[in-house]
Design a protein around this nucleic acid. Structure first.
Length: 937
RNA sequence: GCUCGGGUGGUGGAACUGGUAGACACGCAGGACUUAAAAUCCUGUGACCCUUAAAGGUCGUGCGGGUUCGAUUCCCGCCCCGAGUACCA
């Protein structure tokens, strides 16, 4: 029979589903291996050819690991809460659960026809109550925990309460809000329950607090820092403004140092780790307190301004302090005479969006408050300014400005005529720019004059500590993550309010189900959509929290839910302890790098927390991670001829002729273009306005322009895998996506080479069939050349898969099949092993051939990877490249048994070599056995 | 600006520890089969020079240097493209 991929593929996909071929057990004598894909958000557009790239790679890896004797967990699910379904619901009134359900069905159908070996019995959906019950449960554990710096882990809040009851806040070293009070046991015990709860919120790992948030009016919700790009929302590109709001936050900063440390222990791409390091943004420096000189006429007394600096050694060079306009002390520090000016300035900066502020980076602005601070080391009076180059969100929102050492301070000082004080004899060109050099010896620097940087820093820190004016400090750029969204389609927060304070609902009342609402819009009062739910109260009296959880909540622990087998899902844990003990962590995680600072950071955070409270075993959830590159779209363009006035005509100019005309480029659907040649008939039908389109052709054809862009509907460059599978089959799609290039590299999609891959599969099929296309393999013993071809591929594929170089395997398969075709090999002994080696890449055709070879259907999944035998690759001769001064001249067959001296003689005795030498005497011969001979003349 | 990737034929890419640059595939050209087309098969295909041919030569992995018997691979300097990040004190 000929190679009918359609029959073969549907047959085996059905077989795998009916026989639960890929169902995996939680106990096994085999070693475990966990291969995870980043699960998709099921969008309405379905999968495009970019999505499966990583899934195919992980599937190949999973199938390969099974053949190597591992018990492989390879699951899939859906990150099914999210904005698009809700936006669609707002427009159409259709419940997001319904849209989500339909989209999932499409995704599932598309994934099934690619032949993935997922254990679908373990599927999860984050929007399913049986799943989000546990997302809510984890939230509750976070609420009930605080971070103890002495033990460096999260601990139960009850233990903290007990400590407060007995010793007050004395001796507690916790990660908490700055405004946490200090109190003794008696004070604590005499507080009202409300006061106590209020105080405890400052310690809980998830807490409600008035915070400055990124408010996106267009989306009607707050956004996390990683959801804001360039001052606009990542989704939709809407403007984002800073706003103070009561918000749920996650105290991820408690884990900053562990999150940073852990990066050194995991095998992730270096750029990705670097992104996380930058995001965490650790700076080692000092906090310094500057006393404020009592402003004349000001009733306020003894203010202190705390600054953070990484260069405490330059403190003698401070010529002013600068506060962020948002700094809380600004108002009280301003003298009456300056009040108006300062207020105007603050009003002006508030109006600027973050984007403007960035664009404005070069515009130096600031206002003097009229007040002075005292430098703790030399008691100099230094003016206090307000300047928008100081960010409220970093450090203390105040800086000590050292114009001689910091370029921003230098620019500011020069602009406002403030002094530039040199602090080191190594500083140069201070009239032109700042010099942050740490070389040289200190000058103008009191107690550290004459010292080097290394000597001076400890002296400064000690002096500051002795004076009570500062201490060494580590500062992180990362801030706590805002956890609430004012949206409908997300997990409800399991919290109710009593007298204005948040309390957890009872664990037995989980899951707290998402209520029905009449519309998916905010209420008239401006409350989130959940405010529309009628009678939605805890125990019918306490109002629930109206925000829902952000998109990353459900994805921050999902890999553990897969560990629970379908039968275990009803148990009262998110995954049975035995299952977690067995699977431990994810061995290989494949996904896009766009999740670098979102999902991948939050997941590590929740994982560390879950470990602290004893739910899971490992500090890090994902041992090895690979970023697959993005598959970009290849857009095609037509060029509309323009009139003199710039208006469009209905005539289109072929790409090569556009230089001669005035034209405008238009995206054209790539499905009506073949090898950049436009199908004119289909174009006329593409849109009614093109019905009478006319063309200016080159060589009788219309050639389209080309550009590589992100694959998206609006650019008409989306290629759906369904079409490829329809035309070539899933095995070809799988091989071709791998053949395209290295997995990590981004590349534009084009189908130019797909024919070659398809031809390869047909050639492979033909090895097993005679001229009449009847299945025919021989039981003859294989010859050396055949064994060599086989063992080359056994070794190659094994090496390739283990270093995730899938593209090179495909080429090697082609070489192998070409060789076997030339050898006219149809021997069972060879082909059978080749079937196993190819099966992770092309599972359908190999299953078919495996059963044609007489094996039990479906048993290919359990077949062991063939043992590589290097003996078959040993040659007794090698065609040495002979080079002259490093330039290859000819090949000589030389027995490998010869030693280097014998090889030299052999080479020099050769007539061709002598001809190339042309009478010259070789100075030296370099012989690298089995590699090369180089003659130096 | 900083950090991290990456620059190899007409195209996608290969070359694993410094050892035959361009494997494999696409495309293209020529040929076979065919009434014809598709499919299939065969041959050629980095550029340039020389030659009737056989053979041979020169250049060639972004650019300029260096180390080495030998460099796509290592080192120094520069250019270009992509990604991330950006007043982080």
């Amino acid at each position: 029979m000929d190679y009918h991929f359609k029959d073969i593929e549907t047959k085996w996909q059905r077989f795998w589903a009916q026989n639960n071929t890929f169902k995996v057990a939680n106990n096994s004598t085999k070693p475990k291996y966990y291969v995870l894909d980043m699960f998709p958000y099921p969008s309405g557009a379905g999968l495009h050819v970019g999505h499966p790239l990583g899934y195919i790679a992980s599937d190949i890896y999973s199938r390969y690991k099974r053949s190597k004797g591992f018990n492989v967990l390879h699951p899939m699910g859906y990150d099914s809460f999210g904005l698009p379904a809700e936006q669609y619901a707002i427009q159409t009134g259709q419940h997001p659960a319904l849209t989500t359900e339909q989209n999932i069905a499409t995704y599932r159908r598309q994934m099934d026809q690619i032949g993935f070996s997922y254990d679908w019995s373990r599927e999860i959906r984050t929007s399913d109550p049986s799943y989000y019950k546990w997302t809510q449960w984890i939230f509750m554990q976070l609420f009930n925990s605080w971070y103890n710096l002495d033990t460096d882990k999260a601990e139960p809040i009850d233990a903290l309460i007990e400590h407060f009851r007995q010793n007050g806040s004395q001796g507690v070293r916790a990660v908490c809000d700055d405004e946490a009070q200090s109190f003794d046991a008696q004070q604590w015990n005499s507080m009202s329950v409300q006061q106590q709860q209020k105080e405890l919120l400052k310690y809980r790992l998830t807490y409600l607090k008035e915070s400055t948030v990124n408010w996106c009016a267009a989306l009607g919700t707050v956004l996390a820092n990683d959801e804001v790009k360039d001052g606009v929302s990542e989704r939709g590109g809407h403007p984002v403004e800073q706003k103070k709001m009561m918000q749920w936050s996650m105290r991820i900063t408690a884990y900053a140092s562990r999150l940073l440390q852990g990066l050194n222990t995991i095998d992730w791409p270096e750029p990705l780790k670097e992104m996380q390091r930058n995001w965490i943004g650790k700076s080692v420096g000092a906090s310094v307190l500057f006393k404020v000189e009592n402003a004349p006429g000001s009733a306020q007394a003894h203010h202190t301004i705390e600054v953070f600096t990484t260069r405490a050694d330059t403190i003698y060079g401070v010529s002013y302090l600068a506060l962020a306009p948002e700094h809380e002390l600004v108002a009280s520090l301003t003298t009456p005479a300056r009040k108006q000016e300062i207020e105007d300035y603050i009003a002006r900066t508030k109006k600027k969006t973050e984007l403007d502020r960035m664009a404005d980076a070069r515009n130096i602005s600031g206002v003097f408050t009229g007040t002075y601070a005292i430098n703790p080391l030399n008691n100099e009076r230094i003016p206090i300014w307000v300047a928008d180059y100081v960010l409220a969100g970093y450090g203390t929102g105040a800086v000590m400005a050292v114009p001689s050492g910091d370029q921003r301070d230098w620019l500011f000082a020069t602009h406002f005529n403030l002094p530039v004080i040199p602090v080191s004899d190594a500083q140069k060109d201070l009239d032109k720019q700042a010099d942050p050099s740490k070389e040289g010896r200190y000058i103008n620097s009191g107690c550290i004059n004459g010292l080097s940087y290394q000597e001076a820093l400890p002296v400064i820190i000690q002096t500051l500590e002795r004076l009570g004016a500062g201490k060494a400090k580590v500062q992180y750029r990362m801030r706590d993550a805002i956890f609430g969204r004012q949206r409908y389609w997300g997990e409800p927060v399991p919290v109710y309010f009593k007298e204005g304070l948040p309390y957890l609902i009872d664990e037995q009342d989980l899951p707290l189900l998402l209520p029905e609402v009449d519309k998916y819009l905010p209420t008239e009062a401006g409350d989130p959509p959940l405010g529309r739910a009628t009678g939605w109260k805890y125990k019918d009296q306490y109002p629930y929290e109206l925000s829902t959880m952000p998109g990353w909540a459900g994805s921050s622990w999902y890999w553990y839910r897969y560990m629970a087998a379908a039968e275990e899902r009803g148990q009262n844990v998110f995954a049975p302890k035995e299952a977690i003990d067995y699977w431990q962590d994810v061995d290989l995680y494949i996904g896009g790098s766009e999740h670098a600072t979102g999902h991948l950071l939050y997941s590590r955070f929740w994982n560390m927390f879950l470990k602290d409270i004893g739910c899971v075993k490992q500090e890090e959830p994902f041992k090895k991670l690979i970023n697959q590159g993005m598959i970009q779209g290849r857009s095609n363009f037509v060029y509309r001829l323009l009139n003199k006035d710039g208006s469009g005509t209905n005539t289109f100019v072929s790409h090569g002729l556009t230089a001669q005309y005035k034209t405008a480029a238009l995206h054209v659907d790539v499905t009506i273009v073949d090898h950049d040649v436009l199908d004119l008939e289909k174009f006329r039908q593409f849109r009614p306005e093109f019905k009478d389109a006319e063309f200016i052709l080159e060589d009788g054809r219309y050639i389209c322009g080309v550009e590589v862009e992100k694959m998206s509907k609006s650019k008409f460059n989306v290629v759906n895998p369904d079409h490829i599978i329809e035309r070539y089959g899933a095995d070809t799609l799988r091989l071709y996506e791998m053949f395209l290039g290295p997995l990590e590299q981004s590349k534009p999609w084009n189908t130019n080479g797909i024919e070659g891959v398809y031809k390869f599969l047909r050639k492979f099929w033909k090895l097993f069939h005679n001229e009449l296309m009847e299945f025919a393999v021989s039981d003859e013993a294989p010859v050396k050349a055949e064994l060599k071809a086989l063992h080359k591929i056994i070794q190659k594929v094994q090496d390739d898969i283990e270093r995730f170089s899938f593209n090179t395997s495909v080429s090697s398969f082609m070489i192998c099949v070409n060789e076997l075709t030339d050898l006219k090999c149809n021997k069972r002994a060879i082909l059978q092993d080749l079937v196993i080696v190819l099966s992770p890449y092309a599972p359908h055709i190999t299953e078919e051939l495996w059963s044609l070879l007489g094996h039990e259907p479906g048993s290919l999944t359990r077949a062991a990877y063939p043992e590589f035998n290097p003996a078959y690759l040993v040659e007794d001769e090698f065609a040495y490249p002979i080079s002259l001064n490093g330039k290859m001249k000819l090949n000589l067959n030389i027995p490998l048994a010869l030693d280097n001296a014998e090889v030299e003689n052999f080479v020099l005795a050769n007539a061709d070599v002598q001809r190339h030498l042309d009478g010259k005497t070789p100075k030296k011969l370099i012989v690298v056995k089995g590699r090369i001979v180089n003659i130096v003349v």
